[in-house]
Design a protein around this nucleic acid. Structure first.
Length: 502
RNA sequence: GGGCCUGUGGUCUAGCUGGUUAUGACACCGCCUUUUCACGGCGGAGGUCCGGAGUUCGAAUCUCCGCGGGCCCA
């Protein structure tokens, strides 16, 4: 019996149950899935390290949380996680602020973890008081061995009083770096060794912190758990790489009898052809491989901004990817498509002639071409481009072997090659003629009139010329016809445009 | 060494409380439109739903075993 037959038979035999069984399950997924446990509004966070500028990986976290804040209302906390001096670049504070402004997040408040060490100490003390933590003075290697064998180290048997006393000594600077740390008592027989008595605080004196005067530093699991509770976080959305941290933090929550937020972990994201690691990018900048944090070959937000990628395009792209736990390969094509949706309607069209070759055109009086700024939209007006007898044409078009062209918005020409010299002959105004000959319709510019322009692309620069109007004002996005979109960056003697995408 | 997560066309994604011609987007190809290889419209190709076994009338969906990718303790 086919599926349809069964369905029809059942409809006859048991019409009352039929509806329930074969009910069309249709739910239009619009964007992200709902979050469980939402009461009135949510409190969520974006919590970057100030170790460098923000990149696409950060944008995913930032926008995903932002989307839920928009959906449910509530508070969106920007938490600068600067407790580890080894992962703080003083210049990054400003960069992070700028990048967040660019994204347009609806941040309701900003806090710096470096301002909150005393809160972390208080929670450390409370954990000790509750018998949940001890001061471990074992050598790291030795502890690791014990841990692997599910064996307690001698320090673990401290009474809370002893532990408290030792912690106070730590805070007063009695121990050198590496000599003492605070560990949480979890479960030494936990099948996952990553859970066994993980560290909460350490002594750190070799790397000073610009904003903190301390010898005892909280480790991220302690500071993150503390702040997630103190700031009333209801939902936490972050990468899968934090799953183990989530479990560790839950140990702290349970010791302290705190309500545990709802966690969501999305998959890892690789980006084709791009290094996302801040340290690797920094190394590349120091070695002059990259021009800076906004080098267009990098995956930083400032690099994308420079290329003319719109923040909303990034938002749309990461929302489409969603919160799935599968590891994905982010594709630029995807982002470009989103970006084009946004910029196409606003970008005026202009001519850009890459690798221009001068060609004298015989047989036509000077005329002025009128070309629409935006095809089909008279209201946006026309560009007027003078033809004075000699034009610049793209080298690759001339090299293609074709000898009959339509100069867009002008007229047809025939190319004549004489002793290695290129000459053009006027070949009539008739567009239909050009079409029937399948002549390439190409961009052109008058010599002398046009503006030198370097088009910067990740694969390399292209030098050419463009219409003066195209590079009249910086930070505009134009479409160079038959080349692609570009963001005008510099308007000097030789203008600079960054290639966005086709 | 241990633990955890994950595997749907090239990329992303829906479906995953079992029954669909396996959804949509991007990319690709063709046609239409068009003084751009853009935008728009129409159409097309492209999938062993990682593999195997099992449960079932029926498995992308459930179970088990493999394999691949990723992460944590490092």
């Amino acid at each position: 019996m086919s599926a349809d037959d069964r369905e029809q038979t059942l409809q006859k035999l048991a019409p009352d149950q039929y509806a329930g069984i074969f009910e069309k399950k249709e739910k239009k997924k619009t964007g992200l899935p709902d979050l469980p446990g939402v009461k009135d509004g949510v409190v969520m966070r974006f919590a970057p390290n100030p170790s460098g500028p923000l990149h696409l990986g950060h944008a995913r976290a930032a926008f995903l949380n932002d989307e839920y804040i928009r959906r449910y209302g509530g508070r969106y906390i920007l938490r600068i996680e600067d407790t580890d001096p080894k992962r703080v670049d003083p210049e990054a504070y400003d960069m992070v602020r700028e990048d967040i402004a660019w994204m347009g997040l609806s941040i309701s408040e900003t806090i710096f973890q470096s301002d909150r060490f005393s809160l972390y100490y208080d929670i450390g003390k409370e954990l000790i008081r509750r018998g949940g933590a001890y001061v471990c003075r074992c050598d790291n290697e030795a502890f690791r061995d014990l841990k692997m064998h599910k064996t307690a180290c001698p320090c673990r048997s401290q009474s809370p009083e002893e532990a408290m006393d030792l912690f106070e000594q730590m805070l007063e600077g009695a121990f050198a770096e590496g000599e003492a740390g605070v560990r949480l008592k979890t479960d030494l027989t936990h099948p996952d060794p990553a859970m066994r008595d993980f560290p909460l605080f350490r002594v750190l004196t070799s790397t000073p912190h610009e904003r903190v005067d301390a010898v005892v530093y909280p480790l991220m699991n302690l500071s993150v758990a503390a702040d997630d509770h103190l700031l009333g976080m209801t939902h936490v959305i972050r990468g899968k790489d934090h799953i183990a941290n989530t479990r560790r933090q839950e140990f702290i929550f349970r010791y302290m009898d705190w309500d545990i937020p709802v966690y969501r972990h999305y998959g890892r994201m690789g980006i084709e052809g791009v290094v996302l690691s801040t340290s690797q990018m920094r190394a590349g900048i120091l070695s002059n491989e990259y021009s800076g944090w906004d080098d267009i070959r990098l995956g930083t937000l400032r690099a994308m901004a420079r290329r003319g990628i719109q923040p909303e395009a990034v938002r749309n792209a990461v929302v489409e990817i969603g919160t799935g736990e599968t590891d994905i390969q982010f594709s630029w094509e995807n982002l470009f498509a989103k970006n084009k949706e946004i910029i196409d309607k606003d970008a005026d069209r202009f001519f850009f002639v890459p690798d221009p070759v001068p060609v004298t055109i015989k047989g036509c009086r000077p005329v002025t071409a009128k070309a629409m700024r935006y095809p089909g939209d008279e209201a946006r007006g026309y560009r007027e481009i003078p033809f004075t007898g000699s034009v610049l044409l793209p080298a690759d078009e001339l090299a293609s072997g074709a000898d009959y062209f339509r100069l867009k918005d002008l007229f047809n020409i025939r190319i004549v090659r004489e002793d290695g010299n290129l000459l053009g002959e006027y070949a009539g105004d008739d567009l239909q003629e050009a079409r029937s000959r399948k002549a390439p319709i190409i961009q052109w510019l008058p010599e002398g009139w046009s503006h030198p322009c370097t088009l910067k692309r990740p694969e390399g620069d292209v030098s050419g010329v463009c219409e003066p109007e195209a590079v009249a004002s910086p930070d505009t996005i134009v479409q160079f016809e038959r080349v692609g979109f570009a963001r005008i960056d510099g308007t000097g003697e030789t203008a600079v445009a960054y290639f966005t995408h086709r």
